[in-house]
Design a protein around this nucleic acid. Sequence first.
DNA 1: TCAATAGTGTCTCTTAGACAATATTGA
DNA 2: TCAATATTGTCTAAGAGACACTATTGA
Lengths: 223, 223
Amino acid sequence: MTSARKELFPLVSADVALFSIENGRLVVLLVKRANPPQRGRWALPGDVLKPDRDGSLEDTARRILRDKTGLEVPYLAQVATYSGPDRDPRGWSVSLLFHALVPVDEVPAVAGSKTEAVAWADAAAPGAGLAFDHARHIAAALGKLREKVERHALPLHLLPAKFTLTQLQRTVEAILDRDLEKSAFRRRLKAERSLVEVPGEFERGVQRPAQLYRAADGFEFAV
Amino acid sequence: MTSARKELFPLVSADVALFSIENGRLVVLLVKRANPPQRGRWALPGDVLKPDRDGSLEDTARRILRDKTGLEVPYLAQVATYSGPDRDPRGWSVSLLFHALVPVDEVPAVAGSKTEAVAWADAAAPGAGLAFDHARHIAAALGKLREKVERHALPLHLLPAKFTLTQLQRTVEAILDRDLEKSAFRRRLKAERSLVEVPGEFERGVQRPAQLYRAADGFEFAV
DNA sequence: TCAATAGTGTCTCTTAGACAATATTGA
DNA sequence: TCAATATTGTCTAAGAGACACTATTGA
């Protein structure tokens, strides 16, 4: 039976690269696998499709994140699909990779509150020894994220509801791993409609207060 | 058994939007379905994954094109994955959509040589009444193609091995559905390394001969 | 010579990068 | 007043669009 299944029906699953910002660094969520195969190794959160519970593979991805982190993510999108007989020791498999963004102010909640072992890893260098082909998955998910941001999509889903332009710039810099020119960056933002000022609200510090902004109504993380 | 399969194992398949140029128009290949479901309706060429024969879903896509058209396409890439319980009457299904390009000089061979009913349709208006969600698939595949070309990827796989700059420009215009400025277009090409002159070879007509070019070694259809 | 298209030159406009100058707060 | 950023302005360079001009062939 197992053999028959192997021959005729591939294993279908979803994996999620959940990104956030921690201390100004772009990080990705890993979980320590509690079950075989690859038990004990770090991996992206993932699970097999449950046709009786999931209305789509995107639903599968959302279910995975709910189960592992308790979060409803504000942004989730397909990155790529991987398939073949050798990716998973259980047999012919298809897995759909998603990437998702979670606001920086929810990061502590994720890392702290779970019984399962979860950890944030540097997105650009998640470490060696990951399960399956997940090192490649992370690289692909990051590549897709960078591609969008390079094309001027604003990763507002990584920020709190209200944020300063400098915070946004630091976030974009963390994703692209390079410094941006302040005045050019701000000029670009003004030309768009993605942001709106929150009138009269400022972030205060030991310096001139910074205007707070929020995402415009109907904002989407896309070009 | 069928019911058990429905519950536990989704149907996994691949569909391919094969694009080419016909009389200066961007066209996409449709086949008339010979078997249920949706028998007799026009659809993208597609088939279910055969785990015993396919090394990946990309292999499935190549096999589909080989079977329906006899062609080995020079370019094939993932567009998106669609999934859910209601897309296909046979039950929970996952289908991976690819787009592919075939050179304009192979178009007559495709349309003519097959026993199955195949036809080229206008890619931007493939007509009503397509099977499944394939109208949406075509739109998505075309959107992905346009996105790449907008980002300055050159669709050389749609052209013969040797081509003129005007032929290339017409091809890009067919994809984007708008006219381009000749001098700006050529300036852009010169700045890249994607093309090389074929020394001493020209396309002749009733006008000044046009220099022939070919894709540079290692050319890839990407940004 | 002319029609037809290949190929080039030049102007302008927009946008991005570099960098400097000014603004406003808490300490 | 000063340190520390926020915010704005200005110069320059690169690239894109518009448009016109020159080049070369067959008929």
